[in-house]
């Protein structure tokens, strides 16, 4: 049975991705495009040359981190829809430190990255606390926190960091993750050292969950709160820790955008969607650190490759959003895929 479950855990994402891409091809056919041209444009857009590969890695970096943010909370039975807001405050805090402080790189850069993680953690702390102490559902609180983050950070950009400008100055080079060496390798794409941080964060999540007492307790709380409580664990503490760490991951994703990709923060009319995509990433990656990295890479490729589809094959980029949404549906409805697979097996015999 266990090996069967593991097999399903592997098969279901693969089938879902396949079905999603198939549906994408059908949509292209129905709207009069050539699916082969469409997907080869997508491939070129993601892997065509060194530049696009650099950009694909850049796009994957924050997705890994927001995926971890959702997956980590999910491990203790919490749904972190708030990655969106945690990204924004992390981005803001990192850029703020990058602008306000003068220090050598060895101090400045870690400080700015840490500020992003802390801000995200703080944004995760509020729903964690409310959930732990008052039993308020974290989904609603995190959604509300998203909007509060959006409006407050816009206000801070407008009135504190600048004088009614639409974006801040560039951060000091001592806080920047940008790398001339990597950029040189990739025809000056916006690739930066952040992807090392993202991979490192995935390793940390794996280590925390699989190899430490904290991780054991977090998982236990996710499986059964009452059992955890009666075996002497502090459930509220674990819920708060889980949300804070999850928020920290998302805050790091924001720091990647602020210190790596853009080097500043600009007014946002809506969300970055990194947080919502993180839900898709976590789901497809089965809430497992390694799975999250793979899923983030897949979505990074799809999203970056989509940029080439309008010019390469005339297909609107939104096709990729549709494909991703369908993949989520298929993974979420894995119940039915499982049922169908078992059915096939029986008939095969």
């Amino acid at each position: 049975m266990t090996s069967n479950n593991k097999l399903f855990a592997l098969i279901i994402p693969v089938i879902s991705v396949f079905l999603g891409l198939l549906a994408g091809a059908i949509i292209m056919l129905l709207s009069g495009y050539n699916p082969i041209e469409g997907y080869s444009a997508l491939w070129r857009g993601a892997f065509g040359d060194a530049f696009t590969i650099g950009e694909t890695i850049r796009r994957t970096t924050p997705l890994i981190l927001t995926g971890l943010a959702v997956a980590f909370a999910f491990r203790s039975g919490l749904f972190n829809i708030g990655a969106e807001g945690q990204v924004i405050v992390g981005w803001l805090a990192a850029v703020w430190v990058g602008l306000a402080i003068e220090a050598p790189m060895i101090i400045h850069l870690p400080l700015a990255v840490l500020a992003g993680a802390l801000a995200g953690g703080l944004w995760g702390f509020v729903p964690g606390l409310l959930k732990a102490k008052l039993g308020v559902h974290e989904v609603i609180i995190t959604i509300m926190m998203n909007y509060i983050a959006l409006y407050i950070s816009n206000e801070i950009i407008r009135s504190v960091l600048t004088d009614h400008a639409t974006k801040t100055d560039q951060i000091a080079s001592s806080a920047s993750l940008a790398s001339e060496w990597l950029q040189g390798l990739t025809y000056y794409s916006r690739i930066h050292y952040g992807f090392l941080i993202a991979i490192f964060a995935a390793v940390i999540m794996w280590f925390l969950i699989q190899r430490t007492t904290i991780g054991y307790e977090l998982k236990a709380v996710g499986f059964n709160q009452h059992a955890s409580k009666y075996s002497g664990m502090n459930v509220s503490k674990n819920i708060i820790i889980s949300m804070v760490i999850a928020g920290g991951f998302a805050g790091l994703a924001g720091a990647m955008e602020g210190l790596g990709t853009y080097g500043n923060i600009h007014l946002m009319s809506g969300f970055t969607n990194l947080g919502f995509d993180g839900i898709a990433v976590a789901l497809l990656g089965a809430n497992n650190a390694f799975g999250v990295v793979l899923a983030a890479l897949l979505f990074g490729v799809l999203k970056e490759g989509a940029g080439e589809m309008p010019t390469g094959a005339g297909v609107p980029t939104e096709l990729v959003d549709i494909i991703i949404a369908l993949i989520i549906f298929f993974v979420a409805s894995s119940y039915i895929i499982r049922w169908a697979l078992l059915r096939f097996k029986k008939e095969g015999k």
Binding site: E318, V320, I322, L326, Y335
Partner: peptide, 25 residues
């Protein structure tokens, strides 16, 4: 299909925006 309702809702949001803007274009 007993899907997680929050996940399905998130997918609805993405799908609607994707379909809407795709067809608009």
């Amino acid at each position: 299909f007993n899907a997680n309702q929050v996940v399905s809702g998130v997918a609805i949001n993405m799908l609607a925006l994707g379909v809407g803007v795709y067809l608009t274009k």
